[in-house]
Amino acid sequence: MTNEEFLTEMLDVLQTEEQLSMDTVLDDLDEWDSLSVMATMAFLEKSFGIKTTMKDYKEMKTIGDIAKKAGL
């Protein structure tokens, strides 16, 4: 998955209409809530076979951090 494809997927995962970039700060997004965390967990598991925990989400600050977790 390319970075562009990842960002497009994240729009759907988070159900947001905001412009996303790798530098987007998660806490700046209105949609970064507990539903989004669960949806991101599901996305990383389904698309990359990566398991994440709450600890990971406390450490991740940007969309790029999620991409890094996915191995991109």
Binding site: V37, M38, M41, A42, E45, K51, T52, T53, M54
Partner: peptide, 10 residues
């Protein structure tokens, strides 16, 4: 613990 239960489920 929703997140742990999710990982268990998957």
């Amino acid at each position: 613990k929703g997140e742990d239960v999710f990982n268990f489920t998957m």
